[in-house]
Simulated assay, not measured.
Amino acid sequence: MTQYWPFSGLIRQGALRERLIVSLDLRDREDALALVDRLARVVGMFKVGRALFVGGGPEFIRELRRRGAEVFLDLKFHDTPQKMLRAAVEATRLGVKMFDIHPYGSSCGSTEMMTRTRAEIARICRTEGLRRPSILAVAMLAELKSANSSPRSPESPDRVTEIARFAAAASLDGVVTWPHEVPRVRDTCGRRFIIVTSGVRLREAGSPAAHAITAADAIRAGADYVVIGSPIWRAAEPLRAVREITDDIERGLRNSPRRAFEILNPRPA
């Protein structure tokens, strides 16, 4: 399904909202639910991290799903193989649209753990009639330092593309990475590989700093999703903040060097 309608040159509005993931880095469960109620119709997904999940547990995810929200469960699963597989299965049963895993096996050039996770989730979805979530590897240098066992320095940009290659080889759906890594990952893994990025800056009045990467910049470089949190839920008018971000995403799509039919919606049905 393309993001552009070739006969009209227009971008579907639904495609714009699907590109935005709002991070629920709020301490209070009720505040998070209130924000979801306000934004569920205008954003594609909500990210739940460790703090909110520890506070609300699986029932919080179920409540989000009951309210019609899609969920990116950002727990970076990292444990023994058996425990990690169980966690991945339970995330799938909760109905999340995405979850991520720490690619600790890939530092040794092995894709075994990622491959096993992908295969087990596919099996569970077939046998239980569940929707298969997208499985992402964490390819952010700050997150990889503690797991690195390679002689290559974890500070090297090559580390990110290495993780992305291993994830693609294991048939994972994509990676989570920083905006400045997006072009390398896209060039390495192709157009159907999902790239989720966080750390983008909002477009502000005047000229942005030279090093700032906006949502438009990230999408133009090849990202499929941008994760934004506090600039939305701290805004006086969160709906207006969302509109400004989706406008920026549209600018990125219109100016993308990829041809119209290559700008795909990579999310599984």
Results as ranks from 00 to 15, higher is better:
L75E: 06
K76I: 12
K76D: 12
F77T: 01
F77H: 04
D79N: 10
T80I: 15
K83V: 15
L85I: 15
R86E: 15
A87C: 05
A87S: 12
A88H: 02
E90V: 11
A91P: 01
R93Q: 06
L94M: 13
G95P: 02
G95S: 06
V96N: 02
K97C: 05
F99T: 03
D100H: 00
H102D: 08
Y104I: 13
Y104C: 14
Y104N: 12
S106L: 06
C108A: 12
C108Y: 06
C108H: 11
G109T: 11
S110N: 14
T111P: 08
T111V: 08
T111D: 13
E112V: 10
M113P: 09
M114E: 04
T117R: 05
T117C: 14
R118G: 00
R118Q: 05
A119H: 00
I121V: 15
R123V: 05
I124V: 15
I124D: 04
I124W: 03
C125D: 01
T127H: 06
E128T: 04
L130D: 04
R131W: 06
R132N: 10
S134Y: 00
I135L: 10
A137N: 02
V138A: 05
A139H: 02
M140Y: 11
L141Q: 12
L141H: 12
E143L: 13
K145L: 05
A147Q: 05
A147M: 07
N148Y: 08
S149L: 11
S149G: 03
P151V: 08
P151S: 13
R152Y: 07
E155Q: 15
S156F: 04
R159Q: 12
V160F: 14
E162K: 03
E162Q: 13
E162L: 06
A167M: 01
A167Q: 07
A170D: 11
A170T: 08
L172S: 11
D173T: 05
D173M: 02
V175P: 03
V176R: 09
T177L: 07
W178E: 13
W178N: 08
P179W: 01
V182G: 06
P183K: 02
